[in-house]
């Protein structure tokens, strides 16, 4: 297999994990909360395209919209659900300790998942989402499905957009201030609720983006479909440095790259255990650099 082909495969899987990690890191940055409901928000966004039914066949309703309406619809659904979670659940836990908030997010994730279970049953349903993206295109001699190329481009675009937003706009400044020192930021006039709500909305929109990619790539709507990405995203956030957005993205790419490389290079007998090697590498990173690859300012333990 050509190195270029492997590189594209690694980049596209890494982009998916990086988007997930961004969603987690955004909320962690402002609230010190690891949002374990993120995976279920992803699943919700895909099911938002279907009409509730427990049949084996999916009844596609919003999924039939043309792409320029479909994509904003999913992003808005994701942002909307996320903001709703903020209003209903996380706002009550604003001043509790992080462990309590984490448990609350777990519970919220369960509620969302079982709500979907009630409406759709646990049988995975097949959907055809953005089928035009399944065509292969040839880039620099490597054959890559259009969807993967778009994933990479979207991730780069999102990163650039977020960086501009955080560094150049007032709101971004407020978010960064809140992430560094929430209490001081409030004292200096930053509207806490607004900042947090925007963080949730962005995180929810990112979940929507992941839902579109996963739905289009796998052709399946499954109530546990966000769990795998959520786990990888969480790990990426941790090894990238809790609170560092750049670290989360970098770690996401590294995780995707190592999973792809191992799949491509391991001998056949060992390939089934590829994930064991990936997580082994994660453990090594945490042993030698517990604060993460790129730690945010203020997160290092000061004796």
């Amino acid at each position: 297999m050509s190195a270029l082909q492997i590189m594209f495969d690694a980049l596209s899987l890494g982009s998916l994990y990086a988007l997930g990690a961004l969603g987690i890191a955004l909320i962690f940055g402002v609230m010190r909360l690891v949002n374990f409901a993120h995976g279920d928000v992803i699943a919700f966004c895909v099911f938002a395209l279907l009409w509730p039914s427990v049949d084996a066949i999916a009844i596609v309703f919003a999924g039939n919209l043309p792409w320029f309406l479909l994509i904003p619809f999913v992003l808005v659904m994701g942002a909307g659900l996320s903001v709703l979670c903020e209003f209903v659940v996380f706002r009550r836990f604003r001043n509790t300790n992080p462990a309590t908030m984490m448990i609350a997010s777990f519970a919220l994730g369960f509620v969302i998942r079982y709500f979907l279970l009630m409406l759709f049953s646990s049988r995975p349903k097949s959907i055809s989402l953005l089928p035009e993206l399944s065509q292969p295109v040839t880039v620099l001699g490597a054959r890559i499905p259009l969807l993967q190329l778009i994933t990479i481009l979207v991730t780069v675009g999102v990163l650039v957009g977020l960086t501009v937003f955080l560094r150049r706009t007032r709101f971004g400044l407020e978010m960064r201030a809140a992430a560094e020192n929430f209490t001081m930021a409030r004292m200096l006039g930053v509207r806490a609720n607004r900042v947090i709500m925007v963080a949730f909305a962005l995180s929810g929109a990112l979940a929507g983006a992941i839902a579109l990619i996963l739905g289009s790539q796998t052709g399946t709507a499954n109530i546990v479909m966000g769990a795998n990405v959520m786990l990888m995203a969480f790990i990426a956030t941790v090894i990238g440095g809790m609170g560092s957005l750049a670290g989360a993205v970098l770690a996401g790419f590294l995780l995707g790259a190592s999973a792809t490389l191992l799949q491509a290079l391991l001998p056949p007998e060992a390939r089934a255990f590829r994930d064991a090697f990936v997580y082994g590498a994660v453990i090594l990173v945490l042993i030698f650099r517990p604060q993460g690859i790129l730690s945010a300012r203020g997160m290092k333990e000061r004796v």
Partner: peptide, 21 residues
Amino acid sequence: GEDTFLNEDASIAAQISRIKA
């Protein structure tokens, strides 16, 4: 040739690349 994948893998790009090769 032969290969393995996990049911829950979002992407089997590497497995497909091996077939393409």
